[in-house]
Design a binder for these strands. Sequence first.
DNA 1: ACGATATGAATGAATG
DNA 2: CATTCATTCATATCGT
Lengths: 213, 213
Amino acid sequence: MEPQQDQNQQYPPNEDSSGSSSKGGSYPCRQSSTRWTPTTDQIRILKDLYYNNGVRSPSAEQIQRISARLRQYGKIEGKNVFYWFQNHKARERQKKRFTTSSDVPMQRSSVPNSPWKAEDPLIHSNKFPSITHPGYSPASSSSAGVLPVPQMGNYGYGSLNMEKSFRDCSISSSGTRNGVSISHGWVGIDPYYSSCSFFDKRKSSYGTLEQEQ
Amino acid sequence: MEPQQDQNQQYPPNEDSSGSSSKGGSYPCRQSSTRWTPTTDQIRILKDLYYNNGVRSPSAEQIQRISARLRQYGKIEGKNVFYWFQNHKARERQKKRFTTSSDVPMQRSSVPNSPWKAEDPLIHSNKFPSITHPGYSPASSSSAGVLPVPQMGNYGYGSLNMEKSFRDCSISSSGTRNGVSISHGWVGIDPYYSSCSFFDKRKSSYGTLEQEQ
DNA sequence: ACGATATGAATGAATG
DNA sequence: CATTCATTCATATCGT
């Protein structure tokens, strides 16, 4: 699996600096920005960052820098870089998820436990680690490209009880059917939000309508 | 936003909780998902609140009222409203972060209209004609999106005196006196885990501005 | 031409 | 509030 579609994609020579802007390059004059179509060079660099530098979720500053660099090879925006990493990581994990679980084909461990209507206060406190942080040890936080080997690959998903892996599968039982009619009121809310917002100093950085209460 | 993509909501007509076997996404209009799919009307109102009223982080009571109002247009819970505002605000900021350069104030290359740099509160047309909503009655009028900002009285959370704001609190507004010390607004059903983490430590980012190249 | 797949884009939900 | 995950939609591309 993992086609990874190597740089096979021979995109059209792209428009480069001419300002044609439509990187699709195929259409005479059509929606120039249907969607970003990365050039081979851009993909190569992105993959290099991903695999050789361990970059998985670049921060805003990194994204700016990356997109700036990639701009030499074609039109690109920050969001493209952002999405690219997001998607690449997600898809890699997604695939891994199915291949790794050789045990049970499709074991939907339906945990009848929804954080929002939850009844046990445990949910927040004892949340197992790791599902989100597999194993790609960022190690030296400064990836700076000194990372010799990309230790990507096996995500330790099955290590622990992934009971909550597939979160609630049935939170939608909110009334409307079978007279249970649990409650509408969305009981249980983010503790941070509702609990303590004392010193809640809202800085109106936007300068728009500001409200305080 | 969303140039052409207009995902309609059409929440599940049936309440089958089991996740069916077929790889989801087979059917075009079969969003049998557990997650909330806002209707265009709901989105319109939410954006109106966001942009025209400056609502960014509604309080518990506000969320209650908002969700109550939006419920006319489809199933919705308080948490949905909460998340919506959270996400909308966060993404707006994020977008800014990606695109904003540290040196130049603002430099829009081209792309006259990009979802990431322009947010228009205007609504999108429905892909499908409004289908009858099984569960709740669409309540006749409106629904088709001719309603700018429906009645329902004014929300006091403008930049005005919020003093008189809470008058007809349908539910038992727990506390929330003027000033601060807002407690759980969750109308009585929010007993557990009031993990008061008063002083949320700003994680202060990774603190490492690495990555060069 | 289609259908399948790969992948960009968007967003709800959740965590830290 | 920032960051991340999961899911889904939309479309580009490729195979037959």
